[in-house]
């Protein structure tokens, strides 16, 4: 029993890291994705070409490789070494370690690339007439985007976005490539002590979290059911 509680405590610690990685990735990648999608749709050719190449590279190489590159390449190329967090607050320093920050950077950039394509699809699916209606009513470009277009885009992209976001929580386990002590990493530590079941217990953590996400997305979808777009 004591053993069981011990495992659950350790796994919970790893789960907190996974969830933090998840939330911070979303926080950064959603606006970044929007910016990339605007760059891709830009009429200024060099900018749209560049952002298309960036999206191609980010979607075309394994996330694990990107995590690896962000963490090790600066040191390997003798450019700089990622500094360690040093606030003196131990929980903070270990949770937001250099490894965590490097993984977060890789995740945010990678997911921004995927999100940008979903955003682009959503934005381009809105009829030109909506923009023109806003224009002839004397609204500015940003007013048209934020007051008219955005919510319609949100409604359309909820299904593909929920797919990506659910994938993200499971992808956080790739951070253990650079030894971020997330859920799967903690579970595997127990294998060294001869315990295999914690790995399956870790699966339950993901399952519950994804369950909560699914409920939230369904709610959001219902909430936007009142109009057709």
């Amino acid at each position: 029993m004591e053993n069981f509680l011990n495992v659950l405590t350790e796994l919970s610690g790893g789960f907190v890291t996974s969830v933090l990685l998840f939330f911070f990735t979303l926080l950064l990648s959603l606006p970044l994705g929007l910016i990339i999608s605007f760059c891709t749709m830009s009429k200024f050719k060099p900018l749209s070409a560049l952002s298309k190449i960036v999206v191609w590279v980010l979607r075309g190489t394994p996330l694990m490789l990107q995590v690896f590159a962000i963490f090790y390449l600066p040191g390997l190329l003798n450019l700089f070494v990622w500094p360690q967090m040093n606030t003196g607050w131990e929980w903070f320093d270990t949770t937001f370690s250099t490894r965590f920050i490097a993984a977060l950077a890789a995740f945010a950039i990678n997911y921004a690339a995927y999100f940008s394509e979903i955003f682009r699809g959503g934005i381009q699916s809105i009829s030109q007439g909506q923009y023109e209606a806003g224009q002839v009513l004397g609204m500015t470009k940003s007013e048209i985007f934020f007051k008219i277009i955005l919510l319609q885009v949100v409604k359309r992209i909820i299904p593909p976005m929920s797919n990506e976001i659910i994938t993200l929580i499971k992808d956080t386990s790739l951070a253990n490539t650079i030894v971020v002590c997330e859920l799967i990493f903690e579970a595997k530590e127990f294998m060294l002590e001869g315990l295999i079941w914690p790995l399956f217990a870790a699966g339950a953590f993901y399952l519950i979290f994804v369950g909560v996400l699914t409920v939230l997305f369904n709610k959001a979808e219902k909430k936007l059911d009142y109009f057709k777009a």
Binding site: S127, G129, E132, A133, V136, I148, L151, Q152, F227
Partner: peptide
Amino acid sequence: KMGLVFQQFNLFPQ
């Protein structure tokens, strides 16, 4: 100075 009514109405659905 101009107002325009479209063929497809273009009301804002939300």
